[in-house]
Write a protein that binds this DNA or RNA. Structure first.
Lengths: 199, 199, 199, 199
DNA sequence: TCGTAATCGAGACGGTACGTCCCGTCTTTTC
DNA sequence: GAAAAGACGGGACGTACCGTCTCGATTACGA
């Protein structure tokens, strides 16, 4: 998941990377993504600034790893009999992480960075959990797609858009109720054929 | 936006204000929101930096006015016989502005700033056209709401989220086709009752 | 004493000039010359900034008038039987004004301004009481000059230099003792013929 | 002056420091202390502004080092058989530096800054050559003090005051003749006992 | 076992932008 | 028609980070 760009495994990267990621996560949780400087992360991690830049080319790249580190370790399963239940469950698990970790603030910051910087845009595009459709898609359509089944891509797209907007406008509003609302709206959007006119 | 209802109106020079907004719009269109400094705007507008800071407290506040200036002057009507047609038309008109003006890049930058800075968040929240639900709502439900009519708030929320995501990830992708897709998905999301269970 | 530069007497200058000078003196006493802005003086005097600039071309020019206003109104007499007594008395009277009015801080500020700005230099040169030799000279040599009498110009020059240095380095150190010391040193310097070698 | 005795010496680049001081001296010589901005010094030295602020907290602190750099490197000896000759020689050497380097203008600027700003005051107090009595004192009383010998502190004080006044009022008037006059007056002032009464 | 080379801490550095302050001039409005 | 109110151009300030860079000191590996 990390992007060390080193061909050979780095000699002495043992706990440093973890310390850096932990320091970055903690500072982001406390002060917000934008208010965290690389220098502060380095100081808190007990590491030289250059050590961070050795492994991550930019600040957003570092925080993409922070984000995935916070999210990946939780198994987002989203079990349930039907797509609605599964998606709602998935979002609830995700939102619980957003409430208990700095992930939501990191996500918001990364979206902001993506808006500003094309390089960050690419990192966000490919690096964020909900940016990768697979997790949502698995939740939505594990059993093959019937005729009336929602389109997984549309569901994913709408859900991600709503989550992002939530992260930007109100990073503290990731409640269970919101999970249900987003799941319902995403599924509804996906259920409707893209070409308008049908029931 | 910036005109405090003082007893004596502020003597801000109308020409200067216009020059500042025009310069900001042009630079944002050319280099992107993030790459535009207040000093550059001042230089291009032929104005002292302090003159900008006198009227707008921060860069996002300035660009909220830039954005609304670019969008407001177009009458976004969205005429048509049914909600789908009207919303699609509205978005097409909006997207045409996004293609012909720097508005999309400004929007993306503002979203990014909102993610970073609470003050910008507030400005964005209240200042952006699509942040004000009324325009979309009017397009969606001008004739009162029937039983099967979509919920205007939901439609607005989903449409705005999708537009924002588009602006962040691909500010050049505001095509007519995308307008249709977003309209359809937003309407579908709004048509489905929020409490899950019904068809 | 003021330098209005208006040929005709200004129409409505009644108490405004006094208010301006009083405000400037008070602010200089409270915050020091450098920390006083013309805007602050105008605000405290209940006057528009332009009104100050109408009568005084620059900030130092204003404060030269402030200084002379504070000093002139006191009759610096320096009575006594001999030059030493007279000069000591004169300096004691002056130093009492320095202790009871903002004059010392204004003087220090003006010297600083003179060091920076040629225009201020000229104003200081001609405007300050001790810059004009007459007062000191009168104290030193009112009865004509005998053979061993001190040279008034030298006495004045040394005394002024020592007062200035005191104002710059320690504006609160204008004590009676210091007056005596300065008087003695100035007289001694003046008593000695300029060409070295004589007793 | 700026070299804290850390265990590991600060890695300040000797070349940068020299370039900064040289640029500051040159600009002060050309335009005068007050007209020199830190930005201009940085630009002329080919250095980032922050690099200056890293080592000198304020503009006066920088120019104290500029001044001492201009003066210190000259051995101000003031040799001669008697105090008068030595002091005159010392001042002539100093004044020659004032004529051939920007030191006089820097000195005048620093005095002005000291008048305005307590921090500058402290820097000037301890940093200037003639502010340190030792050089003058050595010139005046190297051979112990006889009964009629001038008081070194008084001589120093009067000489410094006269030099400062000269710097402020006429930085270009540091002639050999003026050196003789100042030396004579300072010695005469010092020769007279401070308590008045003696011949 | 010991060189050798990488890794790392420390932090200086060029650069860019920030937002503030005040000067002295100009413009508008009020009395 | 003078004054208040205050906008304005201009320019410097001192701060904050960015991402790059140069140092030695460590330290693990390969000879």
């Amino acid at each position: 998941m990390q992007s060390p760009a080193c061909a050979r495994p780095p000699r002495r990267s043992a706990g440093k990377q973890a310390a850096i990621l932990a320091a970055a996560a903690e500072l982001a949780g406390r002060h917000g993504y934008a208010a965290v400087s690389i220098e502060a992360v380095a100081a808190k991690a007990g590491v030289a600034k250059q050590t961070i830049y050795r492994w991550w080319p930019t600040k957003p790249a570092l925080f993409v790893d922070v984000y995935t580190g916070l999210i990946d370790r939780a198994a987002l399963t989203g079990a349930g009999p039907d797509a609605g239940t599964r998606l709602t469950g998935l979002l609830r698990e995700l939102f619980r992480l957003y409430r208990t970790t700095p992930a939501a603030r990191v996500l918001a910051g990364l979206i902001g960075a993506a808006a500003a910087d094309p390089a960050a845009r690419a990192a966000v595009r490919s690096g964020l959990v909900l940016g990768r459709a697979d997790i949502v898609a698995v939740a939505v359509a594990p059993a093959g797609r019937g005729l009336g089944d929602p389109d997984p891509d549309t569901v994913t797209g709408v859900a991600v858009a709503l989550v992002w907007q939530q992260a930007i406008l109100d990073p503290d509003g990731f409640t269970d109720a919101r999970a249900g609302t987003i799941a319902a709206q995403a599924l509804a959007a996906g259920a409707c054929p893209t070409d308008p006119g049908s029931p």
